[in-house]
Structure formats: structure tokens, C-alpha cells
């Protein structure tokens, strides 16, 4: 299992003398998650009645409850109009990161969470960074938004710039480190458990023990930590935007 850790399916392309590497497994899972989300949204959207006055169908009621939950839990701090505006972005971010984290529990060789690739988490964090500045400039005006870097004192400008940069860096690294650390720990503990059983002459129980340990590790690091980190990522994104528009 731990032998698989560094193994990757990488496609090297030379474009104009520059070597570009594509991690095929990460791209496949990322595209798969996107297609799954598109399919889900299409299926839910199709269940909505055309007439808004009609009694809600089951799908419409579920959708309304889910959006209500997302609006209060993920976007609770934002003013109402902005919360409605940002609901699709933040909810998509949450669902995308959630499904990417959960992809790691699939027992398929080479398949791993796209979020354990630093490129994926950095693209997501840069996306959030862009949204922060777009909404900050839109809500407060470009001048006031830029002047917020000079507050409380103009000589603190370098501090504010470093803070801005470090915030995005930590946003990306938090998700990346948690998911990659979980994946490494899962692989190493599984292998150690197998070795320990062999040394303790419990080899006949190795399969049962391995399945039990693997299930527990995947439940904890795959499902639980994955859900928490997805929630934290989306919550921080909405908190950063909230700070910028205030």
C-alpha cells in the first residue's frame, strides 16, 4: 500500500520547449467529480415544477431545505443580499472539495483525492482570493477597497500585503496537508498493522484485521476529516469575503 504512495500516472508534454506534466489520475477524478455535480444539479433542477405556485414536489422541498441549510451554515455572517449572491459559489466549493476528499476511499489503484495535489488546492484558494477582491471592490468601491491596505496606519502596508498572501497560502496548505497527511497515515498504518500481525503469528486473521483497520482509517481520515476540511474550506472562504465587504 505504501509502495503506491509516490506512484502517479503522469503525462509529460512538451509545449514550446516547456515540459508540462499532467497528473492523469488527479485530472480524471477532478473531472469525474465535476460531472457528478453537474449530473446531480441537472437531476435536481429537472424535478422543479415550472409553476412557482404549485405545491412543492419532494425534490423541490429537498432542494429548498438544502439551500436553506447551506445559507445559514456556510453564509451566516454575510448580509442577506450578498449571501444569496454568493450561495452558488460557496456551496459549489463545499460540494466539490467534499467529493474530492471522499474520492480517496475508492479502492481503485492510482485513485486518490485530487485535493492531495497542491495544484488543485492552490487553484481553489486563488479562486477564493479573486472573489474576495472582486467583491471587496464591488461592495466598497475600488478606492476604499485599496485604501483598506493602509489601515490602521499607512506604514503597515507591508504587513497587510504579507497577511493577504499568507492567508491564501495557509488556505491552500491547510486542505492539502490534512488530506495528504491522512492518505500517508492510512497507507503507513495499514502496512504496519499487516506487519505486526505477521510478527505476532496472527497471519490467519490478517485479512479480517486488515479490513477492520482499513475501514476505520478510511472512515476517519476519508469521510470524517474530509467532511470537516471541506466545511472549513468553504466557511473560511465566506469569512474572507465577509471581511472584505465590511
Amino acid at each position: 500500500m505504501s509502495g503506491q504512495l509516490g506512484k502517479k500516472l503522469i503525462l509529460h508534454l512538451k509545449v514550446g520547449g516547456v515540459d508540462i506534466a499532467f497528473d492523469l489520475a488527479v485530472m480524471a477524478v477532478a473531472v469525474g467529480v465535476t460531472l457528478l455535480l453537474l449530473l446531480l444539479s441537472w437531476w435536481l433542477r429537472r424535478g422543479l415544477p415550472h409553476d412557482p405556485e404549485a405545491p412543492p414536489t419532494r425534490r423541490a422541498a429537498f432542494l429548498a431545505a438544502a439551500m436553506e441549510l447551506a445559507e445559514t451554515q456556510l453564509l451566516g455572517g454575510l448580509p442577506g443580499r450578498l449571501a444569496r449572491d454568493l450561495l452558488p459559489f460557496i456551496t459549489t466549493l463545499f460540494l466539490y472539495v467534499l467529493l474530492c476528499n471522499w474520492a480517496s476511499i475508492l479502492p481503485i489503484p492510482y485513485i486518490a483525492s485530487p485535493t492531495q495535489d497542491v495544484n488543485v488546492t492552490f487553484s481553489l484558494a486563488i479562486m477564493v482570493y479573486t472573489m474576495v477582491h472582486v467583491y471587496g471592490a464591488r461592495e466598497r468601491g475600488l478606492k476604499k477597497h485599496l485604501r483598506s491596505y493602509l489601515e490602521p496606519y499607512p506604514f503597515l502596508l507591508p504587513m497587510n500585503l504579507i497577511g493577504d498572501f499568507g492567508r491564501t497560502l495557509s488556505h491552500a496548505f491547510r486542505l492539502f496537508g490534512n488530506i495528504l497527511g491522512g492518505a500517508i497515515l492510512t497507507a503507513i498504518v495499514l502496512e504496519l498493522a499487516g506487519k505486526a500481525m505477521r510478527y505476532l503469528f496472527l497471519a490467519p486473521f490478517a485479512l479480517v484485521g486488515g479490513v477492520a483497520v482499513g475501514t476505520f482509517l478510511n472512515l476517519w481520515f476519508g469521510l470524517f476529516v474530509g467532511a470537516i476540511q471541506a466545511l472549513v474550506f468553504a466557511l473560511l472562504a465566506s469569512a474572507y469575503i465577509q471581511i472584505a465587504v465590511e
Partner: peptide, 24 residues
């Protein structure tokens, strides 16, 4: 509490990233 702990964890995650970079 869980959200706060997940954010608190980030300093530990930085050292994990440093360790991973050192090894791999």
C-alpha cells in the same frame, strides 16, 4: 469546536508539509 480545531491544526499541517517536502 471542531471548526476551531481544524483551523488550529494548520500550524501542525505546516510542519507536516515541511516534513513531506524534506522526505519526498
Amino acid at each position: 469546536m471542531i471548526i476551531g480545531q481544524a483551523i488550529t491544526e494548520s500550524t501542525g499541517v505546516y510542519s507536516l508539509v515541511v516534513a513531506i517536502i524534506l522526505i519526498f
